[in-house]
Simulated assay, not measured.
Amino acid sequence: MKHSNLLTLFLPLLLSLLLLAPTTKAAMIQIDLGNAASGLIDGSTYALIPDILNAQAGQPAPFDAGIGSELFGDPANVNWQFNYGAIAESILSASFSFGIWDHDSAASGSQLDAFSLGGIDNTAALDVMFESGGGATDAQYSVYNFNLGAAFFADLADGNFSVDLDIGGTGLQTALFGGQVSETATNGYHLIYSSLSITFEDPSTPPSVPEPSTLLLIVLSLAGLKARIK
């Protein structure tokens, strides 16, 4: 079959597909717990505790105070929950993050006992993040990000998403005079914020179709192609 005949055959089909295949619209839920606008910078060191307490002022637990201590004992495990209402539509993507100060993963051993998202164990993944740079010095602020794949979608859809974090191990303490850093038998830290973002199909918005100008350009391009191959 000649190229011109192929073009004549498939041009109506192409235009029909463009008109009958609208683009799905998406909506997003964004929930922030704690102070997501603290101004603290990932990877930076904040040696003055008042800076951290100011960032936590007025926030809900566990984002309102220190958890555990380098001097007085390991922190208890903490839990926080996102509540946003059930999602009936198909979830397309999701992400999770949290900011933490002074978890001291540069100290010897592991500073993470357990970590789960929506009941799914993610201890190994977060431990790798901790040990590969986060908390590299005493009093460092670090942000950790997770892309939540399809394995999390069923739990996300019910409108409640829980996070469990258990930190322990040795810590780091900077001396008041001389600035010498030493290891401590216990560890403490401060949570600054946590965020959850979910993108899902939005049935309330009519699907979009290609703009008429876009269709016109396609038709003109095909017409030009047909003229060249005659």
Rank of each mutant, 00 (worst) to 15 (best):
M1T: 12
M1S: 14
S4A: 06
N5Y: 14
N5M: 06
L9W: 09
L11D: 08
L14P: 10
L14D: 04
S16C: 13
L19C: 13
P22R: 11
T23G: 08
M28L: 12
D42H: 15
G43V: 01
I49T: 13
P50G: 09
I52T: 05
A55N: 06
A65R: 15
N77Q: 10
W80F: 12
G85Y: 14
G85I: 05
L92R: 11
S95D: 11
F98L: 02
F98E: 00
G99R: 05
W101A: 02
S110M: 06
S110I: 08
L112H: 08
D113E: 13
A114C: 02
F115E: 00
A124P: 06
A125G: 08
M129A: 04
F130L: 03
S132N: 04
S132I: 01
G133P: 00
S142N: 15
F146A: 05
N147K: 12
N147P: 09
N147G: 14
G149A: 07
G149K: 06
F152G: 04
A154E: 14
D155Q: 15
N160C: 11
F161R: 11
D164G: 05
G171W: 02
Q173K: 12
T174N: 09
G178D: 02
G179M: 06
Q180Y: 13
Q180S: 12
S182G: 14
E183T: 09
T184A: 03
T186P: 05
Y189R: 01
S194F: 12
T199R: 08
P203T: 02
T205H: 03
T205Y: 08
P206G: 00
P207V: 01
S208M: 10
S213W: 14
T214I: 10
L217H: 10
V219P: 11
V219M: 09
V219Y: 11
S221I: 12
A223E: 07
A223H: 09
G224D: 02
K226R: 15
A227L: 15
I229M: 12
K230Q: 05
